[in-house]
Nucleic acid binder design. Structure first.
Lengths: 208, 208
DNA sequence: TAGATTGTTAATCGATTAACAATC
DNA sequence: TAGATTGTTAATCGATTAACAATC
């Protein structure tokens, strides 16, 4: 981690702004006000202006923000002026779905390594990639210099694979296994778990 | 929404406690202290005690919490004393992966309806379910009384399908499409988007 | 009993919002 | 110019943490 000056909660909203701006660019729009962004994001205009001002004054009083310019700035802030190569560990249904997912293109993300332990899967082709055995994980990660990984292995394998990824140089892990990974502070971990989200919502549905 | 007394951020942590307690029960443990839970979750012991105390005093001074009892209480709070039926709209790779996902069993979640618009997919069998055409969405949701939905359709279809779901009675939507849905306040929406998480982490990876 | 750990209060910390001068 | 909207400050709001009496 490296929170330095800008709060992590601010950073977490930047990709959302990026997504909305991309959508608006696609719609052919050229400028946007914090009020427009507010309506599209559900966040307050005040908060959006404050978030952006952590990184500089990107707007013009009276006119708002240039979509093109703001996109460019956000991409730079998020280190998207390059492609980040990603390894996927666990090529089950979910790993396969992620490998085929079109939404990574143009977002600075490219899946370049696939690993599994199942002999029926190892050696098979998924998209344009060959699935390698998890035995070669360290070697391949080191060779390729991959720093990000997506973990879609069964819960019992997750922690030990995560440790090995970190050992091999991975510094950001997107974890789909339903377990809280315990890793050193210098590793970024994000957790995706539909069960947690669904149970969260169940609370509000009451019992009727 | 229905925040009443307990902050939403507290509710959002309950499923995580549940997950950890389930894991500990599986390990054969019987009691747990807020300190143990802290170590497994990465949250502070103080925060955990405060979160739980919103719902009552579940522990015993000097001993901690009974895992069994706490599990039971959390399940009740989250309305898990029943099975919540869920519709999946969009049976692509991701929708298919979710339908096959084993992690919903025993968590109060059951996928019971599948919809798609692609003639190659409509009518096909996925797991034990038949994929229906999205034309029948309202009719089937109403008939079955389903209140929760998972949205795995392309981004351009997401908002209009979401509107139709709400119209048909759905009150909780887990959205996998990369767009912010605009829905009435009485509908719960949660968003899962790996791109947002990966871009968030890219910030911290710097540029080396 | 002595030790451990809860439940809760008050203090601290941090994030959001409101307001408005600056300025395009 | 007049109107609109930013960037920023101060006020408010809410969440987390520290501390400790209660008590098992």
């Amino acid at each position: 981690m490296n929170e330095a000056a800008v709060p992590d909660i601010v950073i977490s909203r930047l990709p959302l702004y990026l997504q909305i701006l991309n959508q608006m660019a696609k719609e052919g729009l050229h400028t946007i006000s914090s009020k427009d962004l507010s309506e599209r994001s559900g966040l307050s205009a005040s908060q959006i202006r404050k978030d952006l001002s952590f990184f500089g004054g990107f707007g013009k009083q009276g006119q708002g923000y240039s979509i093109y310019h703001l996109l460019e700035q956000l991409q730079k802030i998020l280190n998207m002026n390059r492609i980040w190569q990603v390894a996927v560990i666990g090529v089950g249904d979910l790993g396969r779905a992620l490998t085929h997912y079109q939404g990574f293109a143009n977002q600075g993300i490219e899946i370049v390594l696939l690993f599994d332990i199942d002999p029926k899967v190892v050696g098979s082709q998924v998209g344009s990639l060959n699935v390698q055995h998890t035995d070669h994980l360290e070697e391949e990660i080191r060779r390729s210099g991959v720093r990000m990984a997506i973990l879609t292995v069964p819960v019992d394998a997750a922690q030990s694979i995560a440790n090995r990824l970190v050992e091999a140089g991975v510094r950001a892990i997107l974890n789909y296994a339903p377990v809280t990974l315990r890793l050193p502070d210098f590793v970024n971990v994000q957790h995706i778990d539909p069960v947690l989200h669904l149970q969260h919502m169940m609370y509000y549905l009451g019992n009727d």
